Lab assay of single mutants.
Amino acid sequence: TGEEYIAVGDSTAQQVGDLTFKKGEILLVIEKKPDGWWIAKDAKGNEGLVPRTYLEPYS
């Protein structure tokens, strides 16, 4: 379980453990880390770190 967020920009994984996503994708945020990198899952079930500045709450 988690909260749904929509990507407001494209982000390409810079290192192992990062999640690549495109603008408009809905991501499920699993954990919000205080350093600004959140753990999220995409629609295909891929999981990784995403920069919170690229996400907005999805409603």
Rank of each mutant, 00 (worst) to 15 (best):
R52H: 14
N46R: 09
Q15M: 11
I39Y: 12
V50M: 03
E3Y: 09
Y5H: 05
A7M: 05
V8R: 09
G17W: 07
G45T: 01
I30P: 00
I39S: 04
D10A: 07
S59I: 13
D42Q: 02
L19C: 03
E25Y: 05
K23P: 02
Y5C: 04
G48W: 05
Y5W: 13
L49S: 08
W37P: 05
D42Y: 02
I39H: 07
E56T: 10
G45H: 03
V8H: 04
L27I: 07
Y54N: 07
P57A: 07
L27V: 06
A13Q: 08
G45W: 02
Y54L: 15
V8M: 10
G36Q: 04
K33A: 08
D18V: 15
A7S: 05
L28I: 12
I26A: 03
K22I: 07
N46G: 05
G36L: 04
D10N: 09
V8N: 09
L28G: 02
V29E: 00
W38R: 00
F21C: 02
D35K: 03
P51N: 15
E31N: 10
K44M: 12
I26T: 04
G24E: 02
L49V: 10
L28Q: 07
I26N: 02
G36K: 03
P34C: 11
E4T: 14
L55S: 01
L55I: 08
L27E: 00
K44P: 02
S59E: 10
K44Q: 13
G2R: 09
L28C: 10
W37C: 11
L55T: 01
A7T: 11
L27D: 01
G45N: 05
P34K: 09
E3S: 08
E47A: 09
G9L: 15
S11E: 03
N46P: 00
D42S: 05
G17K: 06
G24M: 03
K22Y: 09
G17D: 05
V29M: 02
I26W: 06
K22A: 07
N46E: 07
V16H: 11
T1C: 14
W38C: 03
E25V: 04
R52E: 14
E3T: 09
L49P: 06
E3I: 10
G2N: 08
T1G: 12
I39K: 08
Q15E: 10
W37Q: 08
A43T: 10
I6L: 07
N46I: 08
G17L: 05
S11A: 10
T53P: 06
K22E: 05
A43Q: 10
T1L: 13
E56C: 14
P34T: 11
L28P: 00
E4S: 12
E25I: 03
E4P: 14
G24C: 07
Q14N: 12
N46D: 06
G9S: 15
E47C: 14
D10S: 09
A13T: 10
G48S: 02
G48F: 05
K22C: 09
V8Q: 06
Y54M: 15
A13W: 13
G36C: 04
D10Y: 05
S11R: 15
K44D: 11
D42G: 04
L49I: 09
P34Y: 09
S11V: 15
T53N: 13
K33G: 11
I39T: 06
Y58G: 04
V29L: 04
E56G: 04
D42P: 01
E47S: 10
T20K: 10
Y5A: 02
D18W: 15
W38T: 01
D10L: 03
L28K: 07
D35T: 07
G36R: 03
I26Y: 04
A40T: 03
G24D: 04
D10G: 06
N46M: 07
L28F: 12
W37I: 11
E3C: 14
K32N: 02
L28S: 05
W38M: 04
G9C: 15
W38A: 02
L55D: 01
W37S: 08
A7Y: 09
L55K: 02
D35S: 08
Y58A: 08
T20C: 10
P51M: 13
N46F: 07
T20S: 13
A7C: 11
K41D: 01
L27W: 01
L28T: 10
L55V: 06
G17S: 07
K32C: 04
T1F: 13
T20R: 09
E25Q: 12
D35W: 04
K44H: 13
P34G: 10
F21V: 06
A43E: 09
K44C: 14
V29G: 00
P34R: 08
P57E: 07
Q14K: 12
Y54A: 14
A40R: 01
T12P: 13
I39D: 00
Y58W: 11
A13M: 08
D10Q: 05
S11L: 15
G2Y: 14
E4V: 14
A7F: 09
F21S: 00
T12W: 12
V29D: 00
E31K: 11
K44Y: 14
D42M: 02
E31R: 10
T1M: 13
Y54F: 13
K22S: 08
Y58N: 06
K33H: 11
K33T: 08
A43W: 09
D42L: 03
W37K: 09
V8C: 12
V16C: 11
D18S: 15
D42K: 02
E3Q: 12
G48N: 01
G45A: 03
I30F: 08
K23Y: 05
I39C: 07
P51R: 13
I6R: 09
I30Y: 07
Y54I: 13
S59F: 12
P57T: 05
K44T: 09
Y58C: 08
D10T: 07
K23F: 06
L19G: 00
L49M: 10
V29T: 01
D42I: 02
F21A: 00
P34E: 11
L55N: 00
G48T: 02
P34S: 13
S59V: 13
G2Q: 09
P51Q: 14
I30H: 03
L49T: 10
L49G: 06
D35F: 05
P57V: 08
W38Q: 00
E47K: 11
E3K: 08
Y58S: 06
V16L: 11
D18F: 15
E56R: 11
F21N: 00
K23S: 06
I26V: 09
E47L: 14
Y5S: 00
S59Q: 12
K23G: 03
K44F: 14
K33Y: 09
K32V: 04
I26K: 06
L55Y: 01
L49D: 03
Y54V: 11
A13C: 12
D18L: 15
A7K: 01
D42C: 03
Y58E: 04
T53G: 12
F21P: 00
I6C: 06
T1Y: 14
Q14E: 12
R52K: 13
K44N: 13
V16Q: 11
G48K: 02
L55E: 01
I39L: 14
S59Y: 12
R52V: 10
Y54K: 14
E31D: 10
T1K: 13
G24F: 04
S11K: 14
T20G: 08
L49Y: 12
G45I: 01
Y58R: 07
D42H: 02
T53E: 15
D18A: 15
L55F: 06
K44G: 08
K32H: 04
W37M: 13
V29S: 00
Q15P: 05
A40Y: 02
L28Y: 13
K22R: 11
A7P: 01
K44A: 12
Q14L: 13
V16T: 11
K41L: 10
W38P: 00
T20W: 08
L49H: 08
P57L: 09
P34A: 13
I6M: 08
L49A: 09
V8A: 06
T53M: 11
D18G: 15
K41V: 13
P51V: 07
W38I: 02
F21W: 04
I6F: 05
D35Q: 04
Y5V: 02
R52M: 15
A40N: 00
G36W: 03
D35H: 06
E31P: 00
L19A: 01
Q15T: 11
K44R: 13
W37R: 10
E3G: 07
A7L: 05
T20I: 10
I30V: 08
Y58L: 11
G17T: 07
Y54H: 13
V16P: 14
G24W: 05
Q15W: 11
N46H: 08
K41M: 11
E47R: 10
W38H: 02
L19R: 01
K22H: 08
P34L: 10
I26C: 06
